[in-house]
Design a protein around this nucleic acid. Structure first.
Lengths: 87, 87
DNA sequence: TTAATATTTAGATATTTACCTAAATATATA
DNA sequence: TATATATTTAGGTAAATATCTAAATATTAA
């Protein structure tokens, strides 16, 4: 749970997730949406991956990143519990 | 939204919110649940307050902290939106 | 009004985080 | 195989964060 919250605590990483909401993207595509270096984006992607929020698959030279929403269920549950509304 | 995620990114602050879920507590009561100094807890409480996640009221020498769950609605909405399930 | 209690603010330090450039790795193509 | 493209890894720096102790503030009670 800590890795999840840490991953979501950075605005760049949250924006990456928003981008991946629509479709999977290559690391380069993702980097193209930001004004920071590719290695920095790569680092953010790694943190998202470690947190379980994204998955990766290689297709040739490209690495495609996709959002993994299953952990968001846990987050929803955490929030509901805090609101004293366990589902 | 950033202050909210930043506030939730620390395990101590998340635990404070869990404590406040049941009832409001004084700063000292809260500090009693942790092995870190009172000034550190005070700092965490300040961040939670700035994020809008807790409110404070003074009663004599005591400062009572209470959870404010209204922002958790925004968080829920953010998660639902990321899951492509806008309510 | 002096002393005690509750808590925060200030200032310093150690750790973590975000970022950069340069180098390395993996794959594709000429 | 040699070169180009896509991406990560490594190494370093600057800024942000978490923590501490000491001092300040607010309130209560003797």
């Amino acid at each position: 749970m800590n890795a999840l919250f840490k991953a979501l605590s950075d605005p760049t990483r949250r924006k990456i997730l928003q981008l991946l909401k629509a479709q999977e993207l290559t690391a380069g595509d993702i980097a193209g949406h930001f004004s920071i270096s590719k290695p920095s984006i790569s680092h953010h992607l790694d943190l998202l991956k470690q947190a379980g929020l994204v998955s990766v698959r290689r297709d040739g030279q490209y690495l495609f990143y996709a959002i993994n929403t299953s952990l968001l269920e846990d987050l929803m549950q955490w929030v509901l519990d805090l609101k004293n509304e366990p589902s």
